[in-house]
Design a protein around this nucleic acid. Structure first.
Lengths: 344, 344
DNA sequence: TTGAAAGCGCTAACAA
DNA sequence: TTGTTAGCGCTTTCAA
């Protein structure tokens, strides 16, 4: 009794009819007599018939499976994305295979081809940090396999993408700080080479300008502090000890925000009374940041949903139909912690 | 050019040979002339031939896919488990399909049958909190589909399981507190109905006994505090204000530990100088607990690996071979935070 | 209203 | 050494 599932053939044999009739009966085809239909469905019910999806896949040359490649599943952000993907995928009749690149280019290449070999109908990808060559995407995309990028997107491939609105998020969170009454808001920025850092900086500037606050280069922290909590703490400490210290800080991500927080606490500042911290929370710390820090959260679930929708739309498009690649920009969620909680 | 992958037939046609020869050549069958072999492999290389795994699955009646059902992927513990599963599965040539029950019985039942319908070769499950009936497991297990439970196991099904050594973990962490010099160690316990709580209580008692410390019922907190941070905080505050307060606390999980920590901080106790906290960290807070709390961590990655190994062993067992269900009990990792970090 | 046959891509027993 | 054939489970034309 080794995992023996009943087949159409078994039902056909037991009823003394052909398997094509059984097939038709099961899918309520008009040209089947009510009696046979009933006999078949009853028997199917009795034996708990489940169509063999592998045979179906082969027949239709379609696996009804979506592949997902993410850097690391343990990050809160990515696991929420997966939930969003599954939400859409399951209700559209797709299974989801998840694989992790662990931020390694080589693993990503392997995963890509493994999914292709597994005949997934499409792939959702967020690139690894290491990835700078895109041949593997190119190859499978050229072959006609639909791809949709999310969050860490690849500009070199002409396909649909889902990203977050960095500019608006930074604008919103800075505006929030201003509205709370903070007068001198510093910014711990990311490397200027990253487009993301630029967008966030621009959002920050826009909020300042809109409230007639001067942009002051002397309270902008740059360099590698964005990825280094210790360095962020150190630079913040220097800033707090300067002649004209800020009373708030917008940190580019939550790793930086944590460093800032430690510096502030060490200095004995009460948060958020004496010193406010706001930060973009990235995939690493969202659930971990101190409740006192206001963050702009990446809408992971939504992003997963949107990416899955775009992909399925493309998968299910007719042969001749031409689907224009589309880039969706999602608004961030402004999470105001420490006082009330509001999601925008 | 709609996702057209090259097939054995294409290669055969181009070379003017039969597809069976191509098939043989590709798998290095001895009875193929070196010339044909070379011609075939060259062409396969050129066209980037990838065997159609769906056709293979149908042929072999084996999908080489493992299904996983977990309560929620966003929990640190479960996402580590998944990584462990994928680690073993991929190197054994299996894909992994993950689905989430979201702690709902109904979803779990649906997921179970969905995986069965998708013809996975076996299923790894950690039960939802709601689940008290086991017919869905029973059904597919009887049908011959291998199942392995992990962490939240089901005693009603006779199959392999992987669990954590609650007794030993509690013993280790309590012993650690004693060795650090704490003299009066309280215990925030879980509901007595849970076997897990009993095991942890027993481990706690063993450590006390071994060090000739008296078990004092008056510093044992019971009730629903284990699942309620606020209640844990309240009860701890009472305890700390009592005549003979403890100087350390072993909390049954990290939700409770957080409550304990807040109570201690509110009272102005320095951790771990004045008051030490140790806790079993469960799937919810592992990555979030305060660095000052020593925890016994569930070895998620290891658990995933072990569960996957057990499952694959069963999947790949010969027809006639009888595999005895096996329960593996994994040692916890003692993570000593705040001072040095040691993993046992 | 039903059945026979072909085919999705691959493999393996059998034949040549 | 290679080819023919059948079959994994299902659907779908075509024929009856």
């Amino acid at each position: 009794m080794k995992n023996s599932q009943i087949t159409i053939k078994d039902i056909a044999k037991e009823l003394g009819i052909s398997s094509s009739t059984v097939s038709r009966a099961l899918k309520d085809h008009p040209n089947v007599s009510p009696e046979t239909k009933k006999a078949v469905t009853d028997l199917a019910e009795k034996y708990n018939y489940q169509p063999n999806s592998i045979a179906l896949s082969l027949r239709r040359s379609k696996s009804n499976t979506i592949g997902v490649i993410i850097p690391e599943i343990v990050h809160f952000f990515f696991s929420t994305v997966i939930s969003g993907i599954e939400d859409i995928a399951y209700s559209a009749g797709y299974s989801v295979i998840v694989s992790q690149s662990n931020e390694s280019y080589d693993r990503e290449v392997m995963d890509t081809f493994a999914l292709s070999k597994n005949r997934v109908d499409g792939i959702l990808i967020s690139m690894s940090r290491e990835t700078t060559r895109y041949d593997h995407f190119e190859t499978i995309h050229k072959r006609g396999l639909p791809i949709v990028f999310f969050d860490r997107v690849c500009d070199a491939i002409n396909c649909s993408k889902v990203v977050v609105d960095d500019f608006d998020g930074a604008y919103q969170v800075t505006k929030h700080l201003i509205q709370q009454g903070y007068k001198r808001i510093a910014h711990l920025a990311g490397p200027e080479s990253l487009i993301l850092s630029k967008h966030r900086m621009d959002g920050y500037k826009k909020a300042l300008k809109e409230h007639n606050m001067e942009f002051d280069e002397s309270i902008i922290l740059r360099g590698r502090a964005a990825d280094n909590e210790m360095l962020a703490k150190e630079l913040t400490t220097q800033l707090l000890n300067s002649d004209n210290p800020p009373d708030a800080m917008f940190a580019i991500n939550d790793r930086a925000a944590l460093g800032v927080m430690k510096a502030a606490k060490e200095k004995g500042l009460r948060i958020p009374q004496d010193f406010a911290i706001a930060g973009f929370s990235n995939w690493e710390f969202t659930a971990m940041t101190d409740p006192a820090i206001t963050t702009v959260d990446q809408p992971g679930f939504k992003m997963g949903q949107e990416a899955a929708k775009l992909l399925i739309r493309e998968i299910e498009a007719d042969e001749d139909e031409i689907i224009e690649p589309e880039t969706r920009i999602l608004k961030t969620d402004l999470i105001i912690r420490g006082s009330s909680v509001v999601a925008v």
